[in-house]
Amino acid sequence: MELTSLLNTFLGKVIISVAGVMVVFTFNALIAVWLERKISGHIQLRLGPMEVGPHGLLQSAADGLKLICKEIITPQGVDKKLFGVAPYMVFFPSLLMFIVIPFSDRLQVQDLNIGLLYFFSISCIATIGIFMAGWASNNKYSLMGAVRSIAQSIAYEIPIILSILNIVVLTQSLKLSEIVKAQSNMWFIIPQFVPFIIYLISAIAELNRTPFDIPEAESELVAGFHTEYSGMRFAIFFMAEYTNMFLVSAMATTLFLGGWNGPLLPPIVWFFIKTYAIVFIIIWVRWTFPRLRPDQLMNFCWKFLTPLALINLLVTTFILKLF
């Protein structure tokens, strides 16, 4: 009896939400890393991890355990405070972004009125963490990686926001639950296919993943902004990266693929099926294309994606005004 009354309080809700988000966070990090290695292996006619657990399913858990056991090394000459704080600056935004994700019709931590705005503004904070890491490392490669990351983020925020504006114009709402409900008859991917593609490309760029991984280009910058990091601090960067991949896919599902709408199966199952389908596409793209040059990256954003997104927004608003 006392437990139920505790759960109904605000504090109880917060505790349960944090626990739930942490569970999704951890399991996603483990499964997404495993998926990445498996898919990359099979695309290259390899098998990927096979030894730990059935088909290597526990490999990422073993790797995580190893990273936890490692000594945390702070190199000489770094800005110790910034160097220590930076991984958490990348990590916490991705935790906060979970708040507005509608996993099912009832499972959502907080259904904010400005959910969409909240999601994309919080996602920008992670870039500051990346710059902190690059600056504090006192390493030219880290700094170059961070600078590139900032340039890329600024450039690709614009097509992302422009492609999302189409959805906002259609539903007249920034509330994610309402956007999902508006798609019960038709998913927005059908009338808004071009924005979906623009969103996906820009999202991959925001995630700093191949073919847009110039901030951590191995052949030029060692590992970019996290060159000097090891042990658990590196693991936090790594986990944040895969969590962001999940979040971006979850947002694509919510905005374009009808969220938790779907027949027969429970809503939450539909949500995860769609999200991991997008995760699969992101991984598939990574193992197909080579890395772009920085100037090609900027050209592609400013000369192709941004104009296309603008034209698309104009057409959408024009059609909406006509009918």
């Binding site: 898919i39 292996g41 099979h42 695309i43 006619l45 390899r46 096979m50 598939w284 197909t288 294309f289």
Partner: peptide, 18 residues
């Protein structure tokens, strides 16, 4: 073209010998 190629390879049998 590139995406199609990698998907075809994804479904091919791996050559790895354990």
């Amino acid at each position: 073209k590139g995406m199609k190629k990698s998907l075809v390879y994804f479904f091919k049998k791996p050559v790895t010998l354990q």
